[in-house]
Each structure stands twice: as C-alpha cells, then as structure tokens.
Amino acid sequence: MSTVITTAHLDSNRLRTTKPSFPGLVRGELLKTSRQWLTWVMLVLLVGVTIFAHLLTLSSNNTNEKISEAPLHFLYNEMEISLSILRIFGGIFIIIITAYLIGIEYQYGTIRIVLARGVGRLQLLFAKLLTLVLIALALVGGLLLLNALMICLVISFIVGNLQPLNAITPEFWSNTGLYLLTVLISLGTSILMSATMSAIGRSLSFGVSAALTWFPVDNMGLLFMNMAAQLTHNDFWNQITAYFLGPNLNAMPIVLLPAQLKANSIGIPPLAPINGPHTLWLTLAYALVFATVAIVLTWKRDVKE
C-alpha cells in the first residue's frame, strides 16, 4: 500500500515539475501558424503574385527576341525580378507572421498561461524567432522552386525547348547565390524589426501596424530629405539617407553584385553614394539594435495584462 502511495506521489511531482521543452515550443509555434487561415491566404497571394510576374514576361511581345539574342541576360533579368518579388512580398508575409506569433500571446492573454507552465520569457521569444526562421527558409525554398519552374515553362512555351538554359555560367550561379543572400538578410532583418515592434507594443494590432509601416515610412523619408536638401541647398539631408534601413536593403543587391552586371532591384536606393560593405554593416547594426530591444523588453518587463 505504501509503495503505491509513494509511486503515485512521485508521478504527481514529476507531472508538476515537467516543463515544455524548447523543441516542443517550436513545434507548437509551427502548428499554431499552420492552423491560421491568415497564413494560407497570404501564401496563396504570394504565389499568385509570383506566377503573375512570369505571366507578364510570357505576354511581352519581345520576350522571344530577348531570349534569342541574349539568353544569359534574359535569365539574369528573370532572376533579379523573381528575387526582388521574394524580398518585398515575402518580407510582408514574414513581417505579418512575426507580429502575429508574438502579439497574439498578449492580445488574448495566453502569455500568462504559457509562462505559468514554467516557460521562460526569453525561451518563448527564442522559440518564436527560430520558428520564424524556419518558416522563412521554407518560404524561400518553395518560391525558388516555383520561380525556377515558371522560368522553364516560359522559355519552353516561347522557344519550344530549354536550350537557352545552356547559356548559364558558373558566374551566374555565384551571382544568384549572392543576390539570394541579400534576400535572406532582408527577411532576417524584417523578422527582428517586427519582433521588436511587437515587444514594444505588446499588442497584435500595434505590432502589425507598426511593423508594416516601418519600411514605407523609411522609403518615404527619402522624399522629405530630398525636399529639405533642395530648399536649404544643403547636401547634408541627402547624406542622411545613407543610414536609412529600407533604402539600403533596396540597394544591397546592386552594390554587392559585380558592377558590369548592372543589377536591378525593386525599390528606391539612398540618395547618397553607398557601397556593399556599408549596406552590410548598417544592416547588421540595425539587426543588433532590434534584437537587443526585443530581448531586453521581453526579459525585463513583467507580464501583468
């Protein structure tokens, strides 16, 4: 009889002291994201935008001429358009998902339940950030495959075969990898920025609205700086734009890829001259500030709501 009581007591203590593991938290966040209709609606829209961009290429009157005369140039152009769309619209997708995953806990008060189960605040934050990184990587991988498939379909439909792909050189792959790296950097920075906005506001609505307006305001700032420079006849205002995050992310592929490629990227670059190392160091500085603010606020502020 005492053995049964002792065993029951030990089992009860084990249940009370069991804490969710870090991998378990990540699995839970992935499951939570996969069950939200918003995730799939945005994913469908992102896929639709990607396909639509390639359909525009297919419907262009001079596409056949471009492929015949300079197939490598055509492939570079398609690569740049595809990755620019991935950076911009994929960034919007990941910003909203980030704000949702972090802000929803405060919006519905479930953060108190999670913390009451023994999960640390930073442990929960890091689990969410890792989940977002995995989602971003899966998104990039899936859209890369979709873009590759669409480019092959466009070439096959117009030319009748895939022989233009023979124009691909090792430099093309290395330059594509470098352009892709800039996309990954942009997505990673977007995750940290959105997480910071959510940590500051502790609200789903504030996190989404603040995160989504960051880059538009950042880019619109170029207009006001240019106006100030013209009114004051002082180039100082244009030089400030070299430290705006959004324009630097827009220009990053252009300044990192070889100049002879004349790479293109959707978005307005800074009004002041910049180079590749400048964009990388500036983005790293922003990322460190975002990460520090999100971690400190999550660590130090109590959950009272």
Rank of each mutant, 00 (worst) to 15 (best):
W173M: 12
L149R: 07
N175A: 13
Y179N: 01
Y179H: 03
N161S: 15
L144Y: 07
I168P: 04
I168K: 06
L153S: 08
P164E: 06
L146D: 09
S186E: 01
I155Y: 01
L180F: 09
L139K: 05
L146Y: 02
W173Q: 12
V133E: 02
G177L: 11
L180T: 12
I155M: 04
N147T: 14
A167M: 06
S186F: 02
N175P: 03
I155W: 03
G142P: 08
Q163P: 08
A136S: 09
L137M: 13
C152N: 02
G141F: 06
I191W: 07
N166H: 14
L143I: 15
V133F: 12
V133P: 04
S174N: 07
M150P: 00
N147H: 10
S190P: 00
Y179T: 05
L143E: 13
L139Y: 08
L139F: 13
T176C: 14
W173Y: 08
W173P: 01
I135F: 07
S174P: 10
G188Y: 01
I135Y: 03
F157C: 04
I151T: 15
T176S: 15
A136L: 04
G141Q: 00
W173L: 12
L134T: 11
N166C: 13
I185L: 06
I155D: 10
I135Q: 02
A138S: 14
M150D: 12
I168D: 04
I168M: 12
Y179L: 10
L145G: 11
I168V: 15
L187E: 00
V154K: 02
L178P: 08
L145D: 00
I151W: 08
T169Q: 12
L178I: 02
